[in-house]
Amino acid sequence: MINSFLWVDVTFWLYLASCAFYIFYGLFYKNNTLGQLGTVTAVAGFITNTLALGYRAYEAGHAPFANLYESMLLFTWATVLGYLMMEFKYKFRIIGTFVMSIVFFSILTIIWLLPYRYQNIDPLNPALQSLWLEVHVTTTFIGYAAFAISFGISIMYLLKNWVEKKSSDSGLKKFLLRFPDLNILDDLNYKSIAWGFPFLTIGVITGAVWANYAWGTYWSWDPKETWSAIVWLIYAGYLHARVTHGWRGVKTAVFAIIGFLAVIFTYWGVSFILPGLHAYA
């Protein structure tokens, strides 16, 4: 039977394959075919990911953003989309090694680690029945995806920066030679955040509009809201450090990593550790 779970499974294997191709491409062979296969499987995975979301929406009769399982599918979808756009524009396949690993771990998480009840298709509770919810979730996750990409790029930056200083001729160094220039990595990092920040901002604002319709206050300092604000402040700090203090390289890479860790906490940590209104996603 064709249903959303089938498409999620297919997406899982495609992302696994894509991840593996990119890693082999980066690590072992000076072979472009592997890189191309990485791209092709990523595109295929993106298509089945789209179908999974579409079927899920069709089965549930509402936009598939009602729980963690569904929002993670949206996260992988937006991350792969963002990465493919970047690859198309700048042609640095090696970045796929890192971004597709993040994507693969995300989908692995929901298939194996998430308690089964999250996979259920739930009817929307009354507070979630709003068009603002859809805009809120979509924009927030585009923001998260951009930050995930910047996280991957920052790790690449730090690795490359670290190994370039050492003179040994290890295998790792050969791998890292494939990385784009440090300046380019730094610039791409900024570009990802320059996409992520406006979308996160729209996400926070549409969340506020929705809360105003649902609860009568646009800001109530519940932990999820507060953590979004913290994430927002961290990236505002990143932008100012960069633009007004000329911070570059290692410092901004570390900043971006901290930012994404805060995103993960906002998304998962708050749902499972802290109490609040956003129990579903």
Binding site: W221, P223, T226, W227, A229, I230, L233, I234, A236, G237, H240, A241, T244, H245, V270, L274, P275
Partner: peptide, 22 residues
């Protein structure tokens, strides 16, 4: 803008406290 970054940090830290303590 240095003060701005300093303020961001203070706000972020206070907010973290606010979410750790109900």
């Amino acid at each position: 803008p240095k003060l701005a970054i300093f303020i961001f940090i203070i706000l972020a830290v206070l907010s973290v406290f606010g979410t750790m303590i109900e």
